[in-house]
Amino acid sequence: MITPKLTVNISGIKMRNPVMVASGTFGYGEGYENLVPLDKLGAIVTKGITMDERSGNPSPRICETPSGMLNAIGLQNVGLKNFINERLPYLRQFDVPVIVNICGESVDEYVELSKRLSEVSGIAGLEVNISCPNVQRGGMIFGKDPDLTYEVVSKVRKSTHLPLIVKLTPNVGDITCIANSARLAGCDAISLINTLTAMAIDIHTRKPKLATITGGLSGPAIKPVAIRMVWEVAKAINLPIIGQGGIMDAQDALEFIIVGASAVSVGTGNFVNPMATLEIIDGIRRYMIEHRIDEIDQLIGSVKV
C-alpha cells in the first residue's frame, strides 16, 4: 500500500495537506480548539482584518436558504492592533501556517495593513480580500473592476515580502479577467470564490430576511458555480488556486482539486460539521490510496475534458 503525499506548497506556504479553513468561518483559530487540532490543518485563514476595529452589521445577519446560507456580518473584527497584540500570539503556538485575510476601505489601507503585518512574526501569508459583499466601502468594489484589482494588488505587492493570495468575488462577468489583473499585479496565488450576492424575503412580513437587505450566499448551493470558476481560472492563468465554495466532504474537495485547485478551503461546512476538515483530509488520503496516486500534484488540474 502506498503512503500518499498530501503536502502542497502554495508559493512558499508549505502545508502538510491541501485543506484549509476559509476566512470568517474559524475566527482567529480559537472556536473549535477542543475538536480540531489546528496543527492537523493545511493552513488557517483568519477572519478579515481591517485597520480599525469594526462592530459589524445590525441583526439579523444570517439566514438559511435551500442548501445554503446568507450572511451579512459586515467584517466585524478586532482591528489590526488588537489582532497583532491579542490574537496572533495564540495562533503562533501552533505548527500551522497562518494566513491573514486583510480588507481595506482604500488602497492605502490595504498597503498599511500588509506593511504592518509583514513586520511581525508568525504570519505565513496574506489573503487580500477584494471580495467582501457586505461592506459599504472597499471589499468587493475593488474585486469587480480589473483596473482597481491591479492597483490594489500591485501596491500591496510592493509593501510586503509575504506570499500574497488574492481572494476573488464571483459577482463578475469574467472571472479570468480579474484573476489575470491580480496575476499581472504580482500576486502569488488566487483564492476563489467568495460569496454570491443574494437576497431572501419573509413573505409574511414582506421584509428581507437580512437587516442589510442583501448578503452573501455560501454553502453547497454555490459549489457548482465555484467549480466552474476554478476551472476557468485554472485554464486561463498559471498560478496556484485555493478553491472554496460549498465544500462539505472529501468528494467536494476532490472536485475542486481535479479542476485545478492546489488547495481547498472549508467555510460554511465547518458550521454544519465541525470535524469536516479532518474528515476531508482523511477522505482525500483514502481516495489517493484507492486510485494509486502518490502525490496530490498528480491530481491537481487532472480533469478530463
Binding site: 468561518t25 477572519k47 444570517i62 446560507m69
Partner: peptide, 23 residues
C-alpha cells in the same frame, strides 16, 4: 435567541447589540 450558524462564536452571525454600541 438568535439565528445561529456555528454556535461557538466564530461566524458572528448571532449578534445582539449591547450598550456601548458593540455587538
Amino acid at each position: 435567541e438568535e439565528r445561529m450558524a456555528c454556535g461557538v462564536g466564530v461566524c458572528l452571525g448571532c449578534a445582539v447589540r449591547v450598550k456601548g454600541g458593540v455587538y
